[in-house]
Each structure stands twice: as C-alpha cells, then as structure tokens.
Amino acid sequence: MQRRTFLRATTTGAGALAFSGALWQGAAVPVAHAAPDPGPYGPLLPPNELGVALPAGFSVRMVARSSRLVRGYVWHPAPDGGACFPDGDGWIYVSNSEVPLVGGASALRFRPDGLVDRAYRILGGTTLNCAGGATPWHTWLSCEETFRGKVFETDPYGQRAAVAHPAMGRFKHEAAACDPDREVVYLTEDESDGCFYRYRPDSWGDLSRGRLEVLCETAGGGVGWQPVPDPSGPLLGRQTRHQVPDALHFRGGEGCHYNAGVCFFTTKGDDRVWAYDAEAGELSVVYDADGSLDGVDNVTGVAGGDLYVAEDGGNMEINIITPEGVVAPVLRIDGQRDSEITGPAFSPDGSRLYFSSQRGTAGDPAGLGGITYEMSGPFRR
C-alpha cells in the first residue's frame, strides 16, 4: 500500500492497513486495536505491594532507586532508555539519565541468581540522555535529546571510554536501532516535525564515519532515502530535518526497535506506532491511537513478533502489540500518574523485563525519585 493511501485511511479512521513486513509475514493486518479479551497473558490482577498490577504468574521487584545506593553506587536520576547485554553467566542492564549537563548512563550487572553484584557509570558529562539502542557488537548508543545533541557509543562492561559520533547527526536525538542485514542504524528525532533517519557507516562495526540519510516521499507516493547534506546541523543554518525538501516529518519521534527486516518506531504527537519494512522499502502504521495506548514512547520486542510499548504518562502501562494486531496491557503502575515508564528491555534469555518509572511516586521533575524495576514470568519469546 502506498503512503498516500494508508495515510488517507488512518486519517479517516478507516479499516485495515496492509502490512507485508517479514516480522509479521504474509499478513494483512488491521491497525492494532484494544483486545476484546485481556490479551495473551490474561487480565491484570489488583496492584501488589509495590503498586504494580501484573497478570497471573508474573512477579516484579525494585532493583534500583534514583539517589540511593546500589552496591555502593548512587543510581542516577530520571532513568530513561535502556538495554540488556550478556555477560558470562550473568547479564547487564544499562540505563540513560535524562537530566541536563550530568545525564550520561549507568549499568547494573546481575549474577546468575538475579542479584545485582555491581553498579557503575558508563557515560558522564552529557545532557538529557533519553533513549538509544544496543549494537550487535554489544555497545550501547546513548542519545542526547537536546538541540544539536550527539550519539555516544558506550561500553556496557565499563572497560572502554565512551565515544561521540557526530557523523550520526547533530539534532534532538531520541532512539536508535541497528539493522545488521543492511548494516545501517535507524534514528528517531523528538521534534514536532522530526524526521526518521538512517546512518550508513563506512565500515559496519565502526560508527565513526559514514553517511546520514533521511526518509523521504518519492514521486510515486512511496518512500526512499536521500542524504542529509550537512549532518552537523549548523547553528545558524538549516537543521538536519529541514535540509531535504522531500523529507517526511513525524510528530515527535520516540522509541524504535528493529527485528527481521522491519524497524518499528513511535510518535508521541499522534500516538502511532509505525513500521518501516526495510526489505520492501515500505512504510505503514501498526497502531493508530484508539485510546488503549496513550503517550506511546519507548518500545522493545521479541523475536516472535510481539512489541512492548511503554506509556509516557497515560495510565502508566506497558502494552503488548501482537502480530495479530491486538493491544493489551502487561503491567500497570498505580499511584505514579506524574511519571512515565521508560527503558523496557528483556534480559538475554527473555525471562525478565526491565523498565523504570522515571519520576517515581513523588512525580519529581528532576527524577530524583525514579525507580527501576524487574518483571519476571512466562513471557512469549
């Protein structure tokens, strides 16, 4: 389906959108909709002692709190985007800090029994580190959500110093997702007229040099990529999102996640989840706001095709979107309406889901009361 066709359909609230991506292969899937039943995990039970409502068979615990010690390390304020990495018989969860000037990112290292055995800083001296993305070579791309922000490549294991990659563009970055099949990195931009980019490094595995491209509308109504003339986004010149006349603009780019030929990304201004089918070169809408998901933000997923979308506000849920187009909550945090859910990421074995409430129970704008959680249970893989 061509872009003009599906945009017309979603604008009028009509019918099914064809989706031909490899992840949901061979399907003609409607725009995702609220489940008439509780979804694949069943209904949420009443909130537990932590104020978190979960389906039967799942449990949750706090693993870190902002401004408090974790194994001798003070956990950072305003936890945001995150990812997990294998580490011998354990694993690591990294988390950004969305505060100005001293943002950066920190890491929690877990033992095989699930206990935290150390916490440490992997990036400092940066500003408003919002989301990011993991690379196939096990580094964390931490993105600055600020004017002329940068992407920093960090070491989750804490052995190597972080490196800035200005060639990936100087703009209000949000999230990154690596596509190892085409050897590119997709990037979202948190502006009301932001763009969707991809970065083509000269050598896969080395992001220091490459070409930044922006998704554009083609003459036939489809989509294609054009180079951004000046990725540095000069202070007195045109910013990257305004340099290419045919560039497509999105209402506040947020999280993005790549799997099996498709990059999914969210836009908060219209509560949509988009799918860029990299194999077919097509763009479509997977979820168009119907009230079940409010404030779409960070997104992650599993190999089987399920997406997990966190809410920025709303009723503080993480919702699953299944390949069949069903939306249903998998958790809800009660009593924290002035916060947002950030950083959803699965442990390497898929049995644990990490996430944070950025401002916690107090709703402190500085994020000093942020809480990082671990949810365990029989997740679909």
Rank of each mutant, 00 (worst) to 15 (best):
T146I: 15
G82W: 04
P378L: 05
I321Q: 00
A83E: 14
F6V: 14
G252S: 03
G304H: 01
G220P: 03
V31R: 00
P79W: 05
L115W: 07
G114D: 06
A362R: 12
D80C: 02
F196H: 07
G13E: 01
K150R: 15
L141Y: 05
G369R: 03
A362W: 06
L235R: 15
L331N: 02
P100F: 07
A175Y: 08
A105T: 13
V185T: 10
S59R: 09
A177V: 09
G222C: 08
L101H: 10
R198W: 06
H257C: 13
L7F: 13
T240F: 03
R182C: 08
V163E: 10
D288I: 02
E254R: 06
A175V: 09
V60S: 13
D277F: 00
D364S: 11
D271L: 02
L283H: 00
H173L: 03
L115A: 14
Y41K: 01
S351M: 10
G21R: 10
A119S: 13
A14F: 06
M168L: 12
Y157C: 12
A247D: 08
Y276A: 01
H257W: 15
A362S: 15
T126M: 04
Q25M: 01
P46Y: 03
I341A: 08
V326M: 07
V31K: 00
P55A: 00
G255E: 09
A27F: 04
Q2L: 14
R61C: 04
R3S: 04
S106A: 14
G367W: 09
P323F: 00
A16E: 10
P40C: 00
V214S: 05
G350K: 03
D349N: 11
N129H: 04
G343I: 12
V163C: 06
D206H: 12
R337F: 07
V185F: 10
P136E: 05
R160T: 15
A83D: 14
R380S: 10
D117Y: 06
G158T: 11
R332D: 00
G26I: 00
G301I: 05
G26H: 05
G369N: 11
V296A: 06
A161E: 13
L7Q: 14
H257M: 05
V244A: 03
I318H: 01
G42N: 05
R211T: 15
G369T: 14
A34E: 12
F171A: 01
A14R: 11
H165C: 13
